[in-house]
């Protein structure tokens, strides 16, 4: 029963990790940019929800109506000011740039919010629904529902709209896409906006279920990168599956063995998977020509 509970927890928590990881993998797929700042952007989202809740008493879920567009703008601005001007060695330069941007954001957040741990403690954070002997914390249920809604919207956007078609074309062959008149810059800016808003949505839940400070970003980015590698870089479905697998493994190991080894076990699984499939579960190619 404990194990079943752990599996359910893993799936529910995996839902909002999937949001953050989807943002990371999507940005990579479209622009080949490893957004090393995704961790601190999640924390930024968490702080925004926290500030709205503690100062203006806006419910964090409701607050998303403000934070998501705001974070979308942050993403677009980062694209135009930081990524667009990069001319050479785009992959590595954009990674280093995003790291630098993340460092600045980390410094600013630390300056404003100090390094005291905080948490967005809404009324429903500690309440839960009980079915039989299984416990479903309300916050996780809501956040799982939100993740399903947002990810469905993302799928709809990618697979049912003209924009999505252009975006997927850009993912597969940027040069050809450009030649048929697709505005890559607009798409890239938009994608980074979406990626960052997804980080914010995940961050809202993260901030409601964990106490955090700016330095929490390192743990987050390492988990998100691991998830995205496990699923296959650039693969959305991979990111979703991997998030849930990771959290389920972590929670189950925590129950049957010890909480400290949960994450480590996931990493070991990751290494084993990579030995067999270097490109990850859903990765497109094993080896890309240089």
């Amino acid at each position: 029963m404990l194990i079943l509970q752990a599996i359910i927890d893993g799936i529910l928590i995996g839902g909002f990790y999937a949001l953050m990881a989807a943002g990371l993998t999507l940005v990579f797929g479209v622009m080949e940019i490893v957004n090393f700042a995704q961790g601190i952007l999640v924390v930024l989202g968490a702080y925004l929800s926290y500030a709205l809740y503690s100062h203006l008493h806006i419910d964090p879920f409701l607050g998303l109506l403000i934070t998501l567009p705001a974070m979308f703008l942050v993403g677009v601005v980062i694209y135009w000011t930081m990524i667009k001007p990069i001319r050479r060695d785009r992959v590595i330069m954009s990674l280093l740039t995003m790291f630098a941007v993340g460092t600045v954001i980390e410094g600013i957040l630390d300056l404003i919010f100090t390094s005291n741990l905080v948490q967005t403690t809404t009324s429903y954070v500690n309440s839960s629904v009980q079915i039989g002997s299984l416990i479903f914390p309300e916050i996780y249920l809501y956040s799982f529902a939100m993740a399903v809604v947002l990810l469905s919207a993302l799928y709809w956007l990618l697979y049912r709209t003209k924009f999505g078609r252009n975006l997927r074309a850009a993912m597969q062959n940027p040069t050809a896409a450009r030649m048929v008149g697709i505005d890559i810059d607009r798409i890239s800016a938009f994608t980074l906006g979406i990626g960052v808003s997804l980080a914010a949505a995940g961050g809202m839940v993260f901030g409601s279920t964990n106490s955090f400070d700016a330095a929490s970003s390192y743990d987050l980015i390492s988990r998100l990168l691991a998830i995205v590698i496990f699923g296959g870089f650039g693969s959305l479905s991979g990111a979703l599956v991997a998030s849930i697998v990771m959290l389920v493994i972590e929670d189950v190991v925590a129950v049957v063995w010890s909480p400290t080894w949960g994450q480590t076990t996931f990493y070991l699984v990751l290494i084993l998977v990579l030995l067999v499939r270097p490109q990850g579960l859903f990765g497109r190619t094993a080896v890309r020509a240089q």
Binding site: L95, L225, T264, Y267, L270, L274, Q279, G280, A286
Partner: peptide, 27 residues
């Protein structure tokens, strides 16, 4: 393990390995 992949995957894997070692040092 790492040198079986290239480019971005390689870059990201190097970071991941570093974090794994950090985690081990903690644990």
């Amino acid at each position: 393990l790492l040198l079986r992949v290239r480019r971005h995957t390689f870059i990201v894997l190097t970071i991941a390995i570093m974090f794994i070692l950090q985690l081990l040092a903690f644990n």
